[in-house]
Simulated assay, not measured.
Amino acid sequence: MYSREESQKLKREFWVAFAEKHPRKWVLYDTKIKDFSFKFYVDNKKAQVLIDIEHRSDEKRTAYFEKIEALKNILEEEFIKDLVFEKNYTLESGKTISRIWIEKQGVGFSNRNNWESIFDFFFEKMNALEMFYLEYDEFIKDIENN
């Protein structure tokens, strides 16, 4: 078991190694939609690539989620399969958001032998989500015409 400091150091090394393997600027928070972001997540059980829609207005949050959900067939046929769509996802903090994600189970950042497969998973899945978003962002952003 790692101490908290050792775990944080290892996590930093993990992210530096990922950035060195895939040196590029990801969209992440730069979606031009308030509280709509792409995220990487890794712990000691799984790795995830996420779209989090955290708008304070439930109406707007739901509208953005439903826009993506309306494109689900295209998204899964042309970009990425096996996504999980959850309109009302509750964070540990108790906050309700909308989340769309894919995960790889049985991997963790504390095992360096997992890093390569996590990096490949992150790159492949986030790249696919970004390509989808860049192609359909105007449709997604236009929630006034639901």
Rank of each mutant, 00 (worst) to 15 (best):
K87T: 07
L91S: 08
S110E: 14
G108K: 04
G108I: 09
V107F: 02
V107P: 07
F65W: 10
L75A: 01
A63V: 00
E92C: 00
G106D: 11
T90D: 06
K104F: 01
E103W: 07
G94S: 12
G108A: 08
K81V: 08
L83Y: 05
T62D: 14
I80P: 03
T90Q: 14
I97W: 09
G94R: 08
K104Q: 11
I68P: 05
I74N: 13
E103M: 08
F79E: 09
I68E: 08
N111Y: 14
K95A: 14
R112D: 14
N88S: 14
E76Q: 07
G108H: 10
E103C: 03
F65P: 04
V107K: 01
L75Y: 01
N114F: 05
R61V: 04
Q105F: 03
A63T: 00
K95L: 07
G108W: 11
R112Y: 13
F79D: 08
S98L: 06
G106F: 04
N111K: 14
E92V: 00
K87C: 02
I80H: 07
E92K: 03
I74S: 13
I100M: 12
T96N: 11
G106M: 05
T62N: 13
N114A: 07
F85Q: 06
K81C: 09
K60H: 01
T90Y: 06
F109I: 03
Q105T: 08
Y64V: 01
N113R: 04
E103G: 09
E86K: 08
N88P: 01
F65E: 06
K95Y: 11
N113F: 06
I74D: 13
N111L: 13
V107H: 05
K81L: 11
L91Q: 15
E77H: 14
V107S: 02
S93Q: 12
K81N: 15
E77I: 09
E76A: 02
I102D: 04
S98M: 11
K87Y: 04
F85C: 06
F65R: 03
T90L: 03
L91I: 10
G94F: 12
E66N: 11
L71I: 06
L75D: 07
I97A: 09
K67P: 01
E78D: 15
K81A: 14
F85E: 12
R112M: 15
E76K: 01
I80Q: 07
W101M: 03
N88E: 15
D82E: 12
I74C: 08
K72F: 13
N114D: 15
T96L: 05
W101H: 11
E66A: 02
G94D: 14
F65V: 06
Y89H: 15
L91G: 09
V107R: 01
N113W: 03
G106C: 05
N73M: 03
A63Q: 08
N73C: 02
S98E: 09
R99V: 07
N114K: 02
F79C: 06
E103Y: 09
F85Y: 15
S110I: 11
R99Y: 12
A70F: 08
R112Q: 15
T96G: 05
K95G: 06
K67V: 01
S110N: 10
E77D: 15
I102H: 00
L75E: 08
L71F: 04
K60M: 00
K81R: 15
I68G: 08
Y64D: 00
